[in-house]
C-alpha cells in the first residue's frame, strides 16, 4: 500500500514544479479540451508530444507516470473492449450476434484508450508537480469571480485541500488496518469476486470510523484555534506570476493553438 502514488505530490525541484498553480490548472483544462478536440492520430500524437515534454521538464521518472496509468488499467481495458465489440464499422472482420469487430472499431477503440491514458497522465502531472496547498490556493484564486455571486469559494477550497491532505493519511490507515486483519488471518487475495468484496468489510468499517473520528477531531482543532475562514485571512505565500509562467504560458498557448490549427487545416483522416 505504501507505493500507491496516484495523485501524490512528487518532491523534486523543476521548472514545472515552480510554475504558478493557476497557470497549471488553466493549462490542464486547455489541454483536456485539446485532447477532446483531437479527432485523428496526428492531433493526438501532437498532444502526447506536449505531455512528454512536460513530463521531461518536470523531472518525474517515467515509471512514476506509468504507475498513475496502472490505476486505471481496468477502466481503459473495459472501454476498449466495449468499443471494439460494439462499434459498427464498414470493414467487418468478425461478427456474432450483436458483437462485431471492424477496422474502424479497432482504430476507434485504440484512439479512445490513448485519449484516456493521456487524460490520466496529464491530470496526475498536475498533482505530481503541485503541492496540495498551492493547488488549493490556485483553485481559490481562479474561482474568485464566484465570490461575487455569494458562493463560499474559500470554504470549497478548504474542503478540497483537506480532502487532498487526507489521501495519504487514509492510505496509511488502510494499510495499517489491512495488516491488522491479515494478522488475524483475513485473506484479500483469493476467492471469487463476491468473497473478495465481503473480505473488504473488515477494512472498510474501521476505515470509515477512523475517517469520521479524524473529521471530528479536525473540526474541534479548527474551532479551538478560532478558525472562521473567509475574507480577512492573509496568505503566507502569495501567488505571483513570474517570467517562468510567462514562458510556460506562451509555449502552452502555442502548442494548443497548434493542435487546434491542425484540426482545422489538416484533412480529417486517420
Amino acid at each position: 500500500m505504501k507505493d500507491v502514488s496516484f495523485g501524490q505530490f512528487y518532491p523534486v525541484n523543476s521548472f514545472v514544479h515552480r510554475l504558478d498553480p493557476r497557470l497549471k490548472i488553466v493549462f490542464l483544462i486547455a489541454y483536456i479540451v485539446a485532447i477532446f478536440l483531437a479527432t485523428n492520430f496526428y492531433e493526438l500524437a501532437a498532444c502526447a508530444l506536449v505531455l512528454l515534454l512536460i513530463v521531461f521538464f518536470a523531472r518525474i521518472p517515467i515509471g512514476k507516470v506509468l504507475r498513475a496509468v496502472r490505476g486505471v488499467t481496468f477502466l481503459v481495458l473495459f472501454t476498449t473492449a466495449l468499443n471494439l465489440l460494439f462499434y459498427k464499422g464498414d470493414t467487418v472482420y468478425w461478427e456474432w450476434g450483436i458483437f462485431c469487430v471492424s477496422f474502424e472499431g479497432i482504430i476507434f477503440s485504440v484512439f479512445l484508450a490513448l485519449r484516456l491514458v493521456l487524460l490520466v497522465v496529464c491530470s496526475s502531472m498536475l498533482t505530481y508537480t503541485t503541492t496540495p496547498v498551492s493547488l488549493t490556493d490556485g483553485v481559490e484564486s481562479l474561482l474568485t469571480p464566484l465570490k461575487w455571486i455569494r458562493i463560499p469559494v474559500h470554504a470549497l477550497a478548504l474542503v478540497m485541500s483537506i480532502a487532498l491532505r487526507m489521501i495519504p493519511v487514509l492510505m496509511d490507515e488502510t494499510s495499517r488496518i489491512k495488516n491488522a486483519q491479515m494478522a488475524r488471518g483475513a485473506d484479500f487475495e483469493s476467492g471469487n469476486i463476491i468473497k473478495r468484496v465481503k473480505a473488504t468489510i473488515p477494512i472498510l468499517v474501521p476505515l470509515l470510523l477512523s475517517a469520521l473520528r479524524r473529521a471530528d477531531e479536525l473540526g474541534d482543532a479548527m474551532d479551538a484555534r478560532c478558525y472562521t475562514g473567509g475574507d480577512h485571512r492573509t496568505k503566507y505565500k502569495k501567488l505571483r506570476f513570474t517570467w517562468r509562467d510567462l514562458v510556460a504560458f506562451l509555449l502552452g498557448a502555442a502548442l494548443i493553438a497548434g493542435v487546434v490549427l491542425m484540426r482545422i487545416y489538416l484533412p480529417a483522416s486517420y
Binding site: 495488516n179 491488522a180 494478522a183 488471518g185 483475513a186 468489510i201 473488515p202 468499517v205 474501521p206 477512523s210
Partner: peptide, 25 residues
C-alpha cells in the same frame, strides 16, 4: 500480532463475531 491501538480494527456487529473472526479465518 496486536497492533498499536488495536481497538481501531474492530469491525463486527457483536463482540462474539469480532473475536471469532480470526478463529474462523
Amino acid at each position: 500480532m496486536v497492533f498499536q491501538y488495536p481497538e481501531y480494527q474492530l469491525f463486527a456487529e457483536t463482540v462474539r463475531e469480532d473475536v471469532a473472526f480470526g478463529l474462523k479465518n
